[in-house]
């Protein structure tokens, strides 16, 4: 088991390194560079001087070696456009996005559980159908579109919540609702399915026969039962969630990781893009790795079956 875990971690490391290399090279292949976006009409000599300042004057392989050396020392580079170290920029933007993600996950889990269980308990009544209907609907709406429409309705027309930027926790509400919607929908459906599963389990039937038709015990049981599928779901949904986060931040002008990454690409802020991509993908990979290892720990059967991966 320890060997499996070690291998997993090694694989994850290889993937993160691969992503870093690809980002590094691709950024330098696309037209334009940070010296150009900083001083568009500068002469070639002035651009060269700027490039030297920014540490992008050397050939790509040399730059890469330097970058890796810096990374080893824990230094992610400097963002000339933010006038701060990449790590400082990340340290400021990360809490913003974390609030957003945290809110979204809380909303999704609370409503997912609430509605999923309600649907299962009232299976095949109109309540169930309404909930299921809404969940498919929410899953089908393009995220950015919901954002635009909600800004219009909630912020501009009803003036209930602010729509752009960040000046306090109120500014996180609307974007996190938008971010939570599709995830809530997926959760509702999965929780309902696993609840239905439990309801049909012999154990529950037996419990019922013994005259203990206690919903609370059922919920407790099925909740425990649905923990593993929910874990899997979280792993697969995480990528979607991070992607949506970028889009939602764009629509709401919300100053988190996503906004930073979009601006950084537009301005060719090489080191910032690299840092942010590495951050996002490491997060994704580490969470998935943890989930995988969690499985191995939780379920001996998987331990055996997954020997190959």
């Amino acid at each position: 088991m320890l060997a499996t875990i070690t291998r997993r971690i090694l694989q994850g490391l290889i993937v993160i390194i691969g992503i870093t290399v690809i980002t590094f090279v691709m950024l330098r292949l696309i037209p334009s560079d940070p010296s150009r976006t900083m001083a568009p009409n500068a002469t070639e000599e002035q651009l060269m001087q700027l490039k030297e300042q920014m540490g992008i004057g050397d050939p790509i392989p040399t730059q890469f070696v330097k970058y890796v050396k810096n990374l080893m020392r824990g230094y992610m580079g400097y963002s000339y456009f933010q006038k701060a170290d990449v790590s400082t920029v990340i340290a400021k933007a990360l809490p913003m996005s974390s609030i957003l993600l945290l809110f979204a996950i809380i909303i999704a889990v609370v409503f997912g559980l609430l509605l999923g269980i309600t649907a299962a308990i009232n299976s095949n009544t109109w309540i169930d159908r309404l909930i299921s209907g809404f969940s498919v609907l929410f899953q089908s709406m393009p995220n950015y579109w919901v954002g635009i429409i909600l800004i219009q309705i909630i912020s501009v027309q009803l003036k209930l919540l602010p729509s752009t930027g960040y000046k306090g926790i109120r500014y996180s509400i609307l974007p996190s609702i938008v971010l939570a919607l599709p995830m809530t929908a997926v959760l509702i459906r999965n929780i309902r399915a696993s609840m239905m599963d439990s309801i049909n389990q012999n154990f529950v039937k037996a419990a019922k026969a013994r005259g203990i038709p206690s919903w609370s015990s059922l919920i407790k049981y099925s909740f425990r039962n649905s923990l593993i599928p929910m874990l899997t779901l979280f792993g697969t949904q995480l990528g979607v969630l991070l992607g949506n986060c970028v889009v939602v931040e764009y629509v709401f002008g919300y100053p988190g990781i996503g906004m930073q990454i979009l601006n950084a690409i537009v301005r060719r802020d090489y080191y910032l893009v690299q840092g942010l991509v590495a951050l996002l993908s490491s997060f994704f990979i580490i969470v998935n790795m943890a989930i995988d290892i969690g499985y191995i720990y939780l379920d001996p059967r998987i331990r055996k079956a997954q020997g190959g991966l």
């Binding site: 800004i151 219009q152 912020s155 501009v156 729509s163 752009t164 629509v251 709401f252």
Partner: peptide, 19 residues
């Protein structure tokens, strides 16, 4: 003085009084 890339976002912020 704040940078907001998207013109529609800028207008929405003006409409809500955020700008």
């Amino acid at each position: 003085f704040r940078y907001v890339a998207d013109p529609a976002t800028r207008l929405a912020a003006l409409q809500t009084g955020e700008a």
